[in-house]
Design a protein around this nucleic acid. Sequence first.
DNA 1: ACATAATGTAATATATTTTTTACACTAAGT
DNA 2: ACTTAGTGTAAAAAATATATTACATTATGT
Lengths: 75, 75
Amino acid sequence: MAKAHTSNNIRKLRFHHDEMTQQELADKVGVTRQTILAMEKGKYSPSLELAFKIAHVFQLPLEEVFTYNPENDQA
Amino acid sequence: MAKAHTSNNIRKLRFHHDEMTQQELADKVGVTRQTILAMEKGKYSPSLELAFKIAHVFQLPLEEVFTYNPENDQA
DNA sequence: ACATAATGTAATATATTTTTTACACTAAGT
DNA sequence: ACTTAGTGTAAAAAATATATTACATTATGT
C-alpha cells in the first residue's frame, strides 16, 4: 500500500469560479472554512462524499478536481 | 446539505473480476476485510483515497464504481 | 489611521472511518 | 461427518476527518 496521495485544484477552481471564497465554498458543501483550508493545504484528504459535493459545486467530474497519485501501490 | 449518499458496485465488480474475494480486494488496497464488507453493506462511505484505490484495482474511473446521490443539497 | 474581508495557524473537541478480534453461518470438497 | 473458504455480525480501540474557537496577517476601501 504505502503513501498514495490525493491532490486537488480547489484553490484554482475557486478563483475560476467568480473568485469564490473559502467560506462560500464551505457553505455550499456544508462544512467549515477550516475544512476547505486544510484540504487546499493538503493537510488531509476528504471523505468521498465531500469530494463529490465539491466537484458538484464546480460542475466537474470528481476526477477533474481531485487527482490520485499512487506512490508505489502494488498492481 | 442534508443526507447525500454514495453507493457503489464493489460487490458486482468483485464477481466480474474473477470472483475476487473480499479478502483479496482488501489486500490489494491495503485495508481490512471488514472495511470492504462495511462499504459493500453501505455502513459508511470510504475516504477519497480508498475510493481511488478501489477504482484503480478495477481499472475503472472512480465514478463508475461509486455514484453520488445528492438527496437535497442546495444548488 | 481605521475598518473590513479573506486567508493562515493552532489547539481542543467531536464524529466518522478503519482496525482488531472473535464468533456464527453457509456452501463446497474430502 | 469433517474441514475449509467465504461471508456476516458485533464491540471496542485506534486513526483520521471535521467542527469550534480564537487570534494573526495581509490587502483593500474609506
